[in-house]
Write a protein that binds this DNA or RNA. Structure first.
Lengths: 226, 226
DNA sequence: CCACAGGCAATACCAAAGTATAATGGACGC
DNA sequence: GCGTCCATTATACTTTGGTATTGCCTGTGG
């Protein structure tokens, strides 16, 4: 009986385990697109080639692991600009840059902006495959975490403002009576709110709730990408 | 009375607020060392010039905010090798690379390994100053977090193995009686251990303890720097 | 106007957590 | 052997948390 433990929100939904990863390819050079496409197909991924940033952006978003093989120099919006735009739109897709003209400042800029890899032509088959593999793996992780965060935020949004306040104070370690004191309400009312919070957040224990709160408001950003 | 809240381990010691930041400079070219030294002095930081990686490594570690301005190509151990060595030794010092011969693969490698900036000669005064400023700011943060983690780990090390077990199960959300069931001991014994855990960890509440446990064992590494 | 949701509060009761105190036995080191 | 630390358990009691049920008030929207 004591072996039947439940771990609340730790039970995460697997993110489409059977989905075929998609590799977006943005390059104005047809021959490059085709060779990368071939490579992608060889590895049993799905290639999605585009000749410009605009074309790529007009493509609908998917919900499968994916990454972007991006040419640095493009007609119209160039690779770095596209990278920035994706970042601004909070589209977290791993990017592998490819370029014919090595340019240290641009490569550094790309890497600082979070690019996963920066390869120069002529492309090394293995290097590109490995980079894509790693990118897709990261994408998988990001998708899973994203789904979890989405779930959490959805539940959190269901709380009333009072319940938000109570939750904040409770996970800060205050006793019910102290929460009541802070908010100017009675302890029994705090209990009622607290109960609602636990139910709406689907928390099985206070420990659970504290962990959820930590995820909802990361005190320290993992890394600052200024 | 209710305004006198305590937040346990959240009270962190300020990391030497008045310490002068140190900028280590490693370059085999005397003129570069001198010009960077001048720049550093102008900004009221303390320069520490070295002509080689070996010299730098033999210098004693300090406990003040610091960063490293590092030439890519050096006699003996080169910049990238030094970066790797520091990483292996878990010496987390922000690195700003400088180099005369732009090399995209090397710059990418450096950035992937966590370099903060990668500048090419001739050095732009403002770019370098800004990079150093950001590096020192990051160093300050890292030092503070490091000190906090050190504190936590020290306290955690004071727990007996039984107390470790109890803490783990408690922060996973189990009730005392359930913890007792898991460990095959009585509830009252769990209470005794739990009490010890709270005292030794200096936790003011269960919420506090859960947060500490989260910091001690990051379920998901913030970023994987493979 | 009425139904409904949110916020508040009370009584009453049970479960769990925390505190105080004490006691036993094993392991370890001096 | 003796002191110390660890682990264990017990009794007895207080505080806090959780649940059930009920009631009132208010604003919102059909």
């Amino acid at each position: 009986m004591n072996s039947a433990r439940t771990f609340g929100h730790e039970v995460r939904t697997l993110a489409t385990p059977s989905a075929v990863p998609v590799v977006f390819i943005v390059d104005d050079d047809v021959s490059v697109r085709e060779s990368v496409e071939l490579l992608v197909r060889n590895e049993n991924w799905k290639p999605e080639p585009f000749a410009s940033a605009q074309e790529f952006l007009s493509h609908p978003r998917t919900r499968v692991p994916s990454c972007l093989v991006l040419d640095l120099s493009l007609p119209g919006q160039n690779g770095l600009e596209l990278q920035k735009q994706l970042s601004l739109q909070h589209i977290d897709m791993p990017i592998i840059f490819i370029t014919g003209y090595g340019d240290v400042p641009k490569s550094v800029q790309a890497m600082k902006a979070g690019a996963l890899e920066f390869l120069t032509k002529p492309l090394d088959y293995n290097a590109l495959v490995n980079a894509i593999r790693k990118a897709l793996e990261r994408s998988r992780l990001a998708l899973a975490q994203d789904a979890e965060m989405q779930e959490l935020r959805t539940r959190y949004a269901l709380l009333t403002s009072r319940e938000h306040q109570v939750m904040t104070l409770v996970v800060s370690g205050l006793l019910n009576k102290q929460v009541g004191g802070e908010l100017g309400i009675s302890e029994i009312t705090v209990k009622a709110h607290r109960r609602q919070v636990m139910q709406k957040m689907k928390a099985n224990s206070l420990a659970d709730l504290v962990k959820m709160a930590s995820k909802l408001r990361p005190g320290r950003p993992a890394i600052d990408l200024t």
